[in-house]
Design a protein around this nucleic acid. Sequence first.
RNA 1: GCCCUGAUAGUGUAGUGGAUAUCACGUAGGAUUGCGGAUCCUAUUACCCGGGUUCAAGUCCCGGUCAGGGCACCA
Length: 564
Amino acid sequence: MYRILEKNARKSVIEALDSLKWEKIRDIKFEQPPDPSMGDLATSVAFQLVSQQKSSPVDIANQIKDVLKVKSPFKKVESVGPYLNFYLDYETFFKLVLKSVHENYGSLQDRNTKVILEHTSANPNGPLHIGHIRNAIIGDSLARILRAAGFQVETQYYVNDMGRQIAMIVWGLQNLDYHLDTDEKADVEIGKLYFKVNQELKENSDVKNQVNTILRIYEEKNPEELEFLFKSVVRKCLEGIKETSQRLQITHDRFVWESQFIRDGSVDKILENLKDHTSQNDVLYLDFSDYGIEKELILTRSDGTSLYTTRDLAYHLQKSEQSDWVVDVLGSDHKLAIDQLKIALELLGGKKPEVIFYEFITLPEGSMSTRKGVFISVDQLMDEAFRRAQSELKDRRPELNESLSKEIAEIIGIGAIRYFIARLSPEKHLVFKWDEALSFEKGCASIQYAHARACKLLEKASATGKLSVEIDTLDFSELNTLEIDLIKNIAKFTSIVENSARDLRVHPIAQYAMEMAGTFNKFYKSVQVIGSDKEILRLLLVDKSRITIKNCLNLLGIDAPNSM
RNA sequence: GCCCUGAUAGUGUAGUGGAUAUCACGUAGGAUUGCGGAUCCUAUUACCCGGGUUCAAGUCCCGGUCAGGGCACCA
């Protein structure tokens, strides 16, 4: 709604400038006035005209104000110093807003644009740990936001099934006396085995050669039994990862295995197509010194096998061909590699990906490592979140039955985790602390609580029948500031969605959800709904708030319980 | 050494070059016979340092400081 307001106001300003016969300004800026008494939308366009008009911004603002004609739902414009402040006609505006909020409020028009969004893509050499969830949560939330914003999104998990790590696990299965415990999750067991192989590798340098041999045979000859071993390790591990992801409400539309790009010849084709640019000594490589990157990109090892980046290049080319827009979520440690990949992709005529980088989550004692067996798994984190939510719930709602209590505790626990990650801008380094990550007492739970409150209130008022009124028949003339704040906040949602999608940013959604809950709670606290003479109108506000909070949380993959 | 990020109240954090810098936690007080107190109100405290660009800098540029990451025939 605010996007529309801005467009509306911009048009008025342009017409005013035309009538003054002044030159056009290419980018008229709008902002929120600091105080509602200063209007609902403001522009500082007068500043931008200073050099052109050679006059003071205050005079300019006044001159514009004199000729500017506002359009509905605005009712007037004032000049305050150098600013032009637009005032809404609340009655018109509020009716407009409330009419626009339906059950899937926040979903924008289809853009007929296909996006392939790659996220998570953790190596299948162990369970997901809390370093991975930043990728998964940002990626999954982004997918939801982009879908809401009208994009057709396909999420992909790139499966690294032929890297050295997997070869090491295969070596372990062949050479170590280690039996995977079938009672335990397979990803956990594979993680343990991977750790053991790394220990072995430290003690015995010959292991490295043996792993190399496995890798070479797998890539070149691909004998059946070896392929089976590789694939079953990866498949098993992936099953565990999927199980974990699903509990976090994270799904992927497609799993793309990197080995496919070796087997179908696309890596060879790429090497052929890059022939004019590559150099060869021991290895085949691309020299990027002309592009300002000192580090060359190595495409094949001296034994002729491919590297991760080579296969990734083929993968990106495929994504580029199958979509209009390629988006990757990657840890900032991939920055150099992606710069190189982008250049190579350009040489091959593919689209460059848009990359969301995030900084690492570390433990207070240092960084996590599957190799060293130092990590907190996502399963552990979710179990702990559940446990804490459940004990909180026992105190607050002792009357709840076991199964409902479990269901709600799960929703609160998962919400706490997802919110904790989603609320942060990705370029911030994060040191993981249990109490901060799971502080649902005052975090996401307060948003969920606002939603539950709204649901309860509507239920108590047996509102369903009362909400089918014609909005135009309601009296909006004497609203208090809490009601006004609430409607204005609801109105912001669509522009928040649109901007978040455009900027590929998740945290504004999280921030908005908190604001929306806060505004609703203030309203709830001091405005009586049931039994008041404006009951219908207020029930309507409660219902629209409920929808907005719910849909907003859903964009973050967080459920909004009706009761908690 | 070179490259990339980050630095905002006690803590964590938001902030498209624009008016009085956001939100949460913490701390100290306070509120409510109402629709659920996982609530609300009040107080508290901040833009790392030094230059520059601009009518206007937390935001842009240059130089420092501190922190994280990268600079593999790893992924």
